[in-house]
Write a protein that binds this DNA or RNA. Structure first.
Lengths: 248, 248
DNA sequence: CGGAAGCCTTGACCCAGATCAAAACGCTCG
DNA sequence: CGAGCGTTTTGATCTGGGTCAAGGCTTCCG
């Protein structure tokens, strides 16, 4: 997990790994320069909290590398993950003073942050930013709604299968692997984090993963390394329409 | 339920009840005129389906009056409501061809629709529309995430209390009633629709409502008319921080 | 007025997943 | 190497909410 000293911080937007998928995706060279003036990088170690819900938040930003979670906690300690932040995902809300959720780095994390005030001003005069942010927010809303179905109506086994298929699908698009062959990836979450995402207990998560393994739906090597021999089978277990619904 | 022949269709944007809260909220007079050119009203009766998930959708629009639901259904019939559309809420997504969810009128419904293509073009040149839509979408995302906590971690009783408090709060803001006194409103949903929203069965919904009534948290007159003698008590039952969290 | 169709409530029973408890599996570190 | 700690697995038991089954209450309509 410590490939680099502090993980790669891009020297320049041009070589930034999320250049084409983040809020800045549609920006022209001059707009990038303006963003550059108000931006700074921050690194977090795995386990560190980026912000606590309710804290004053004077920046917004993008995940450059690593994974973070967005969680909500009740007074008695019950917690629910409400978002999984992957590279290019946006954190924070223009026009809001305080953080609405806890943001925690699940792996080592690099963020590209913008001071909030200037970012808001820039957004007002740079349609490209607002347009892209709208698009990303609509995508997140869709993801949240899909997750509502998972939380409200799926069984524990289906929930696990749903989570695995989402992670597998994302990983496949990053690796641009040709379809067909078995998919292989590492789980970026602990059993407890999965439980928080799925509205289950960690014991149930563990049991269902064991069951899927026993039934040959997945193969495990160690606790985290997953192989999926037949993706359609997994989708079936997830209760999803197995049309493979490939949204472009 | 049939107060008006077809419910009130505004003659003019100026007298439109959602003028200041819908996508058009920030538009100037000339922008409104342009929207006017591509808009038309549609009315639906309670129970009618506005669109089916997957259908081609050549419009977007706002709820003017009445209530609609956004639901997702699995092949085996399990359904989950993923959104409750109230007056001023926006339906549809610029840039998407087909509907992602079933939209059903729960009460008699009037919508102000815009042909999608021209709306998208107008959006590209009218920042006010995109800005407002972004703001609304961010609000919906927050609501969806709050709902994820309800679905994933709350007990049946807490779920019912959460739903009642949301409806009560909304009703209070519409009526601008001074705080303090008992809150009174009509449930806009059947037990089954509540169950679909809460990820429960209608039997459980019924039982928990009876229990809340028995315990004096709510009072019922008929099946739908609800009185809440002590709103803080209800919030407490919902498991929410009872700081009254009034977000401006 | 009687019947039928929608909603809603209530009861009896059952099971998926929670809870409680213990042990196994890596690790890092002295 | 062994101690200690965080993570994961597995077992035993309990329970909240699902399922199945009967009515009850309204409203509509012939």
């Amino acid at each position: 997990m410590l490939e680099n000293e502090t993980a790669a911080i891009p020297k320049d937007c041009a070589e930034c790994p999320i250049r084409h998928r983040a809020v800045c995706a549609r920006c022209e060279a001059d707009e990038l320069e303006q963003l550059d003036d108000i931006k700074y990088y921050r690194s977090f170690e795995a386990g560190q909290t980026v912000i606590w819900a309710g804290d004053k938040m004077d920046f917004v930003g993008s995940v450059v590398s690593g994974i973070a979670t967005l969680t909500q906690t009740m007074e008695d300690g019950r917690t629910q993950m409400v978002g999984l932040l992957l590279p290019s995902d946006f954190v924070g809300r223009p026009g809001r003073e305080t953080a609405a959720y806890d943001v925690v780095a699940t792996s080592d994390l690099v963020m590209c942050c913008f001071r909030k005030k200037p970012f808001e001003e820039l957004m007002a005069v740079t349609p490209h930013i607002g347009q892209r942010l709208l698009e990303m927010t609509l995508d997140e809303l869709d993801a949240a709604r899909e997750w509502m179905l998972v939380l409200g109506r799926k069984t524990a086994r289906e929930k696990i299968a749903s989570l695995l298929s989402i992670i597998a699908r994302r990983d496949a698009t990053l690796k641009l692997a040709g379809a067909g062959g078995p998919m292989v990836f590492d789980l970026p979450l602990t059993r407890e984090a999965m439980a928080d995402y799925l509205g289950l207990t960690l014991e149930t998560v563990s049991r269902q993963i064991s069951a899927l393994k026993r039934d040959g739906v997945i193969a495990l090597e160690g606790k985290r390394h997953v192989t999926i021999p037949d993706f359609d089978r997994l989708l079936d277990e997830a209760g999803d329409d197995s049309d493979g619904g490939m949204l472009a």
